[in-house]
Simulated scan of single mutants.
Amino acid sequence: MSRRLSTGIDVLDRQLDGGIPTGSIVLFSADPASQSELLLYEVTAVRMALYLTTIRSDQAVQDALDRTSRYTKVGEPTIRDIGVEAPLDQGNKLLGTLPTESTLIIDTLDPLERQEASRYRYFLNQLQTQMRNTESIAILHAMDGRSVPELRDVTEHMADVVFHLNTEIQGTEIVNRLSVPKFRGGRALDETIKLKLSTGVSIDTSRDIA
């Protein structure tokens, strides 16, 4: 059985038998209107992290981390903006700087999935090799919005683990449910995890509205 790296979120680690196997690529898809970034920020608190941003500037990500740190624990990741020009080339170069047993975050993945198919496939294979060589994990944050990239199916196939955050408005409440339908090297979850995303990530113990 592969060693596991903690996500930094206790409720999730318990469900995943300790965390995510080293060498894994995790696809984390969510609605753009959700607060899914909170999960990314908390993951940075566990170990060294390289945060590649493609849409927001590196300063915008740092500001968001600083605001979040007032309420919950976050780390001090190395943040790099790769979204300005040739994101796949920049991403490939930065993969080589990843230290052992660290976390790579790509937020968001969508601009990379809109690149030429063969080049994107090459990037994913390089990413997979680097994760295994460094015994690290990669979290690819993807948006389930109105315009999902055509290469999302390729990402889902290549990913070792798939997290999907579903956000719905039920009555007067916003309900977030995390599902894990795919988990190579472990077991996929039979049930969703109800999360509360406000100032941090926690288990939602409120009862569902009938």
Rank of each mutant, 00 (worst) to 15 (best):
residue 31 D to R: 02
residue 210 A to P: 10
residue 105 I to Q: 05
residue 98 L to D: 08
residue 196 K to V: 11
residue 90 Q to C: 10
residue 56 R to W: 11
residue 19 G to M: 09
residue 159 A to T: 03
residue 89 D to F: 11
residue 175 V to G: 06
residue 111 P to G: 05
residue 188 A to H: 13
residue 134 T to M: 05
residue 135 E to P: 10
residue 102 S to Q: 02
residue 79 I to W: 06
residue 131 M to N: 04
residue 67 R to V: 07
residue 81 D to E: 09
residue 27 L to E: 15
residue 1 M to F: 14
residue 158 M to C: 09
residue 98 L to H: 00
residue 43 V to T: 15
residue 142 A to C: 05
residue 64 A to F: 10
residue 107 D to A: 05
residue 136 S to V: 01
residue 43 V to M: 15
residue 110 D to M: 06
residue 183 F to I: 02
residue 146 R to G: 08
residue 178 L to G: 02
residue 168 E to D: 12
residue 87 P to Y: 04
residue 51 Y to D: 01
residue 78 T to K: 05
residue 118 S to V: 14
residue 63 D to K: 12
residue 39 L to Y: 02
residue 43 V to W: 12
residue 149 P to R: 07
residue 145 G to R: 00
residue 175 V to K: 04
residue 26 V to F: 08
residue 156 E to R: 13
residue 115 Q to S: 07
residue 107 D to C: 04
residue 133 N to S: 14
residue 30 A to G: 03
residue 71 Y to P: 05
residue 49 A to Q: 02
residue 202 S to P: 01
residue 44 T to L: 03
residue 53 T to I: 08
residue 166 N to A: 11
residue 204 D to Q: 06
residue 201 V to C: 07
residue 126 Q to F: 08
residue 49 A to I: 09
residue 130 Q to E: 14
residue 78 T to C: 01
residue 27 L to Y: 14
residue 2 S to K: 09
residue 75 G to I: 01
residue 205 T to K: 05
residue 24 S to R: 00
residue 57 S to A: 11
residue 162 V to T: 11
residue 128 Q to R: 12
residue 208 D to K: 04
residue 86 A to G: 06
residue 2 S to T: 12
residue 208 D to P: 03
residue 77 P to A: 02
residue 12 L to F: 00
residue 190 D to N: 03
residue 5 L to Q: 00
residue 2 S to A: 10
residue 77 P to Q: 04
residue 41 Y to P: 07
residue 90 Q to R: 14
residue 74 V to R: 01
residue 202 S to C: 09
residue 56 R to Y: 12
residue 85 E to P: 00
residue 195 L to R: 01
residue 82 I to Q: 04
residue 14 R to C: 03
residue 45 A to R: 06
residue 78 T to H: 00
residue 186 G to W: 07
residue 152 R to N: 13
residue 32 P to F: 09
residue 94 L to M: 03
residue 7 T to N: 06
residue 173 E to F: 07
residue 126 Q to K: 11
residue 70 R to S: 08
residue 141 H to R: 11
residue 67 R to C: 06
residue 81 D to A: 01
residue 28 F to C: 01
residue 16 L to Q: 03
residue 138 A to W: 02
residue 164 H to C: 12
residue 173 E to P: 09
residue 20 I to C: 00
residue 49 A to S: 08
residue 109 L to E: 06
residue 38 L to A: 09
residue 37 E to L: 09
residue 198 S to M: 12
residue 167 T to Q: 07
residue 155 T to M: 07
residue 58 D to W: 10
residue 12 L to I: 13
residue 48 M to W: 13
residue 191 E to L: 14
